[in-house]
Design a protein around this nucleic acid. Structure first.
Length: 422
RNA sequence: GGAGAGGUGGCUGAGUGGCUUAAAGCGCUCCCCUGCUAAGGGAGUAUACCGUCAACACGGUAUCGAGGGUUCGAAUCCCUCCCUCUCCGCCA
């Protein structure tokens, strides 16, 4: 959610942001300003009437205390009429407030000036390339490798839950657990606090990080208990401090959290969902930061470098994309995607997405800190995957496979797995 | 899930319809006093929104778990919900 005062002062900028993010109709900006204008007029009117009514109620109290009942009765008559009037205007006031807030929630975050303007993924900028991509023709895609060894059981996953809910068996289950531990350890070493978070969240939390109203369809819903299965640890972790005012000394807050993630992924098909490429349930280690506004872009670069460092340590070639305005999503102001090279499929797979939300999420959830002047200020929130598991597993299986079918264990994981081959 | 008791500023805690502008204490900030590991005095100390102002500030409104209701007036009375504690039940 943007600051209404910002929208008032930067109408054209906000309209451009909406267009650049791929929405043609920008009338929401004009609408919200008009509704806000009427709301503010109404607030003044109603506050004035409430003031009058409060003053009179106090007089009545005084007179009653002195036993002057008749004089009190006269004023009660006056205020009864006033009360009716206040009630009428209050209804209009609440309606305007609701309209204003609904409209505000429909306005996307404004992209940072360093973000390329573009419509589709073709307009994303390749920010960085690391490693030499492997084009060996004998390399098999990971679904062949896991089938040969019985490492992932898709069929039984379908039986038990449905498509997109595989079982990991034996060595790959172990590999995945090793990666989770490795990722968490790396973050903890860099000062992130490890968190274990709820996997089900309430509606306020889903709204706080912007899944509602924008991306409602991505989530699994448990209607009976009014809960949502988290699509990413971003949701519980960013909401951890919702509604709080943090002390200046307490920020930056840095959290690392492993969770499974559930996504409905409606409308996916074909090679995109083959094997482990896209699942309804997958594991992810997530990094979340809450920082002072003046540091958020510096912190975004640190976040990106941290995620890149994990792929480098695993010796997996990757590229980093700077997402263009049209491909970056509703809530972000700047976003990098990390894509690992999948040598068995000869394609890039997204394994991390590092974003700065500036104050967009924090304003919704009223997450603030007290600055040097003792004034409250909205913090900036960031998050990034570090990293998403199944695609890293795929890349490892494909990159570390040998011609005889064996798969080597990456050096940094040997301590967790205790042998040289899976 | 059942029964009972509760939810009040950063914390403790008083407050059964109007002299409450939420007492008092603790903590914190600033000032004053004080030649010695101490103590005393004074002032201040929530959040959001609206308005005035160049700014410092000032005025108004709302908020005593949340949302409704009764009333001229609600922390206080009524209804619904949420949460905490105690006991029982269930349970890894």
């Amino acid at each position: 959610m943007l600051d209404i005062n910002y929208i008032r002062d930067n109408k054209a900028k906000v309209e451009d942001a909406i267009r650049n993010k791929g929405e043609e109709d920008v009338s929401v900006v004009k609408n919200v300003l008009e509704v806000d204008e009427s709301w503010r007029e109404k607030v003044q009117l109603v506050d004035g009437m409430r003031n009058e009514s409060n003053v009179k109620a106090k007089e009545i109290g005084k007179l009653m205390g002195q036993g002057k009942k008749e004089e009190a009765q006269a004023i009660i008559q006056e205020t009864s009429a006033l009360k009716e009037k206040v009630k009428e205007h209050e209804e209009a006031l609440n309606k305007l407030k609701g309209e204003r807030d609904d409209l505000l929630l429909k306005i996307p975050n404004v992209p940072h000036s360093s973000v390329p303007v573009g419509a589709t993924e073709d307009d994303n900028e390749v920010f960085k390339n690391w490693g030499n991509i492997n084009k060996d023709e004998w390399r098999k895609p990971h679904w062949d490798i896991v089938e040969r060894h019985g490492w992932v059981d898709f069929e039984r996953g379908v039986k038990v839950s449905g498509a997109g809910f595989p079982f990991y068996v034996g060595a790959v289950a172990q590999l995945q657990r090793a990666l989770i531990n490795y990722f968490i350890n790396e973050a903890a070493q860099k000062g992130y606090t490890e968190l274990q978070a709820p996997y089900l969240v309430n509606e306020d939390s889903a709204r706080g990080t912007g899944q509602i109203p924008d991306k409602e369809d991505m989530m699994y819903v448990i209607p009976r208990d009014e809960l949502f299965a988290i699509p990413t640890a971003e949701v519980p972790v960013t909401n951890f401090h919702r509604g709080e005012i943090l002390a200046e000394a307490d920020i930056p807050k840095k959290y690392v959290c492993y969770t499974p993630c559930w996504r409905r992924e409606a409308g996916s098909y074909g090679k995109d969902v083959r094997g482990l490429n896209r699942l309804h349930q997958f594991d992810k280690v997530e990094l979340v930061k809450m920082v002072k506004p003046e540091h958020s872009y510096e912190e975004l670069e640190n976040l990106r470098k941290h995620a890149e460092g994990l792929l480098e340590a695993l010796e997996l070639p990757y590229r980093t994309l700077l997402m263009c305005t049209g491909d970056m999503g509703f809530t972000q102001s700047k976003k990098y995607d990390l894509e690992v090279w999948s040598p068995g499929q000869q394609r890039w797979l997204e394994v991390s997405s590092c974003s700065n939300f500036e104050s967009f999420q924090a304003r919704r959830m009223q997450l603030r800190y007290r600055n040097e002047e003792k004034k409250t200020e909205i913090v900036h929130t960031l998050n990034g995957s570090g990293l998403a598991l199944p695609r890293v597993v795929s890349a490892i299986l494909e990159a570390y496979q040998e011609e005889d079918g064996k798969v080597r264990v990456p050096d940094v994981l040997k301590g967790f797995i205790g042998r040289d081959y899976l």
